[in-house]
């Protein structure tokens, strides 16, 4: 077990009747990394995580967390795992402190350790002064912080966060990001699902992109971006470009892809592309740029190019 990766998924398949939600997934999450699962709604992301946490039985294939089978050794696996569900799953009628106490009881934390740990977690969530308030009176950000504190209460080796910043304002989002980075610094492994690419870039060591239940790509955020091109040249012309211009640009060396949208042109470039030469070609074929912009590619574009659709489709 000491050598086992944090998560190992092999040939994972899940079918619901005739529908295949997860279709042969293979990946490993190493210990101590922050691993992101990215995919549009209905891509099989949630089903995968349900199988990892032992809530759902795979149709075929296997899952192990730190070498433990989450179904057959469910109790051992659940002790290793801390979960922050998207809907927070807090008892709204009870106080913050009572919610944490219940979790401590469920996870068999010895009675003498409970008060200390609960206090520490309330402190971490910056909810010490609201410990005796009903959760129903909390804001979305406070609930999310409390759910994180609860997941960490039993000191899990692996923490799973489901869309941790969905519906949370910008400030609260930064606080949550800090928590996640802190978990990593404490040596925990973090698995998170997200639809925010910025979040994935900021936090994740590696990201897996899932679509239609299959693994489309798995790499560091930087490597994923460079697959799309090392940079993107955006041009706004005086008039819509002629098809000949688009074709000519496409034929240039180190040009990955050209997309035209009205007067705009988007050219994704591989490393070593010569921007002056591209601009010269544009001028030669009658295009006159009004504005130009050279930037890094976004994960949105990576995703679109990999799956042929946007994240929120």
């Amino acid at each position: 077990m000491s050598e086992a990766p944090a998560i190992e998924v092999r040939g994972l398949v899940k079918r619901f009747g005739g529908f295949t939600a997860v279709d042969g997934l293979d990946f490993r999450v190493e210990r101590g990394e922050i691993f992101g699962l990215l995919g549009p709604n209905g891509s099989g992301k949630t089903t995968t995580v349900n199988m990892i946490s032992g809530l759902s039985a795979p149709t075929a294939g296997s899952v192990a967390i730190l070498g433990v089978d989450p179904l057959r050794q469910a109790q051992a696996a659940r002790r290793l795992l801390g979960v922050v569900p998207q809907e927070t799953a807090l008892y709204e009628e009870l106080t913050a402190e009572r919610n944490l106490r219940f979790h401590a009881e469920l996870f068999g934390i010895p009675a003498r350790e409970r008060p200390g740990r609960i206090a520490a977690m309330l402190e971490l969530a910056q909810l010490t002064d609201r410990a005796r308030s009903r959760v129903g009176t909390f804001s979305g950000g406070m609930k999310r912080r409390l759910a994180i504190a609860r997941a960490l209460l039993h000191q899990p080796a692996l923490v799973y966060l489901d869309e941790p910043t969905l519906g949370v304002d910008v400030q609260a989002r930064r606080v949550i990001w800090d928590y996640i980075l802190q978990m990593k610094s404490e040596g925990r492994t973090v698995l998170l699902t997200t639809n925010y690419l910025e979040e994935g870039e900021r936090l994740c060591d590696r990201m897996a992109i899932i679509d239609h239940g299959r693994l489309v790509a798995l790499d560091t955020p930087g490597a994923l971006k460079s697959r799309f091109g090392s940079s993107v040249l955006e041009l706004e012309l005086e008039a819509a470009p002629a098809p000949a211009l688009v074709a000519a640009l496409q034929a240039l060396p180190a040009v990955r892809e050209v997309a035209a949208d009205g007067e705009r042109l988007r050219v994704s470039l591989a490393a070593g592309a010569e921007v002056p030469r591209i601009l010269a070609e544009v001028a030669r074929l009658g295009g006159s740029p009004r504005r130009l912009n050279l930037r890094e590619p976004s994960l949105d574009e990576v995703f679109l190019s990999l799956t042929g659709r946007g994240l929120r489709d």
Partner: peptide
């Protein structure tokens, strides 16, 4: 949604 808390408990 608190059923998750119970389901994920050891």
């Amino acid at each position: 949604g608190t059923i998750k808390e119970l389901l994920l408990a050891p």
